[in-house]
């Protein structure tokens, strides 16, 4: 079971992760064509700032994910293989209950489709686009069990489920 780990002090807020995330979740999957697509490709990872610090904010794929529990249409579910929390677009009715309950604020609204969008750990890739593109290696994609305790201690936002 692999998860994205974040080392915030390596983050430069270049937002490459945001951009590559949007591209990965587009049809064309390339920087030149994707931006003009409709519906607009959306990123599902976020880099914010507070108090002068740069803060990458990623979905934790929580153990007791509030979005899964709260979903009134059965769109949010846990993938049996990757254990990632996923949103089944075909089921989503855009009621935004997940947006209301996500304590990290990482569920976005695709307004043109009226659907919730969230991190899916890039199921078509070996490792997520954000991790692959991070120029400072502030993001890593690691097996929760294999990820040594010491190493994990130096990484923030240790993902629940480990």
């Amino acid at each position: 079971m692999k998860r994205i780990f974040v080392q915030p002090d390596l983050c430069t807020a270049c937002k490459t992760c945001e951009m590559q995330c949007a591209i990965e979740h587009s049809q064309a999957k390339n920087i030149f064509a994707s931006p003009s697509e409709k519906p607009h490709p959306m990123n599902r990872v976020y880099v914010e700032a507070a108090d002068g610090r740069k803060i990458p904010i990623f979905c934790r794929h929580c153990d007791d994910a509030p979005c899964v529990a709260a979903c009134i249409s059965g769109a949010m579910f846990r993938d049996p293989i990757t254990d990632a929390v996923m949103c089944d677009s075909s089921r989503c009715i855009g009621c935004w209950t997940c947006v209301m309950v996500c304590p990290y604020g990482v569920i976005g609204r695709q307004l043109e489709l009226g659907k919730a969008v969230k991190c899916d750990l890039c199921p078509e890739r070996e490792s997520p686009a954000c991790v692959d593109s991070c120029p400072t290696k502030a993001l890593v994609f690691e097996d929760v069990e294999k990820f040594s305790k010491e190493k994990r201690a130096s990484f923030a936002a240790a993902i629940a489920g480990g």
Binding site: C11, T12, K15, A49, K54
Partner: peptide, 10 residues
Amino acid sequence: QVPQCGFGET
């Protein structure tokens, strides 16, 4: 614009 890109900042 905040956070601004650290590569540009440095």
